[in-house]
């Protein structure tokens, strides 16, 4: 494979990059990283896909087009997408408030924003059930409905975008905004042309995490959602049902589909992020 010579450009640039020598320490670093990554991620992922493939295409298709399963997958994806959109707005807003505003209790808020990360999901489920279940003390009853899935996703994914955006916002130079303002740019323009492009990569990364986490969520919603077929049953519960019936290929098929969709979403988010960042 030779790249066509372009006018005035040295052809050697790319090969030189590929052939550059690793120092001993970075070689070891790369080796450890790859080994670690393979053991924890690549091999297990390959095993899931291989298990799904073992059932054959027909079985895969039958599994994911099963009415009850596809309904669960749709509910999961819909709620995950919606939650991600909400997080993009609210998460960014919370990060903004935490960085730019000074108010009483800010330090405390900083601390508790990570709680959804730290809380074991089943405990989160119990808390949600007691707050938003039957006889909710807050007057919000979502138990055993599709909304409960949305609520549980919101809870566990809250910190992702906040924690991604916050450090970027802290690094952002306010002088630039002031300069833009002095040149007559409106607040909206400043946000759109200066702040947003800088935040876009962080928002996209947080959104990807948030979506992926929601798609696989189980513990926090399982008590609240009631797992009612066609209403509040999510994909991970269908996976569990398949496993209980010794239908590993079926379980892996659903998991594979979710993996592929999560991957696509991450790619799309990355493309969008690049577009927005370029606008700046």
């Amino acid at each position: 494979m030779t790249t066509p010579v372009q006018e005035g450009r040295p052809v050697a640039t790319r090969p030189a990059l590929l052939n550059h020598n690793l120092t001993a320490s970075s070689g070891i670093g790369l080796g450890i990283s790859m080994l670690w990554f393979s053991l924890l991620v690549l091999i297990p992922l390959a095993a899931v896909i291989a298990t799904a493939a073992a059932g054959g295409w027909d079985e895969f298709w039958r599994t994911i087009t099963n009415e009850q399963t596809s309904s669960a997958i749709k509910l999961t994806l819909k709620a995950a997408a919606l939650v991600t959109l909400v997080n993009i707005v609210i998460g960014t807003a919370i990060a903004w408030v935490l960085v730019r505003d000074k108010f009483w209790g800010k330090g405390l808020l900083e601390l508790i924003i990570d709680i959804p990360f730290a809380l074991p999901t089943i405990v989160a489920g119990l808390v949600l059930l007691s707050l938003y279940g039957v006889n909710s003390p807050l007057g919000i009853e979502v138990a055993n409905t599709g909304d409960s899935v949305f609520l549980a996703f919101l809870f566990v994914t809250l910190p992702f975008i906040v924690r991604m955006v916050q450090p970027v916002l802290e690094e952002l130079d306010e002088d630039v905004e002031e300069a833009a303002a002095s040149l007559g740019a409106s607040r909206v323009t400043i946000f759109r042309r200066i702040i947003l492009p800088s935040l876009a990569p962080a928002i996209a990364a947080g959104a990807a995490l948030s979506f992926a986490r929601a798609v696989g969520e189980y513990g926090s919603l399982v008590l609240l959602s009631g797992n009612l077929p066609f209403k509040s049953e999510v994909a991970s519960v269908r996976i569990l049902s398949a496993i209980e019936n010794d239908n590993r290929a079926g379980a892996a098929s659903i998991a594979t589909l979710l993996l592929v969709i999560s991957l696509l979403v991450i790619i799309v988010l990355d493309v969008v992020q690049r577009r927005v960042a370029r606008r700046g």
Partner: peptide, 9 residues
């Protein structure tokens, strides 16, 4: 109204 995954749940 609720189909949990275990008797305990």
């Amino acid at each position: 109204v609720s189909l949990t995954n275990s008797g305990r749940d």
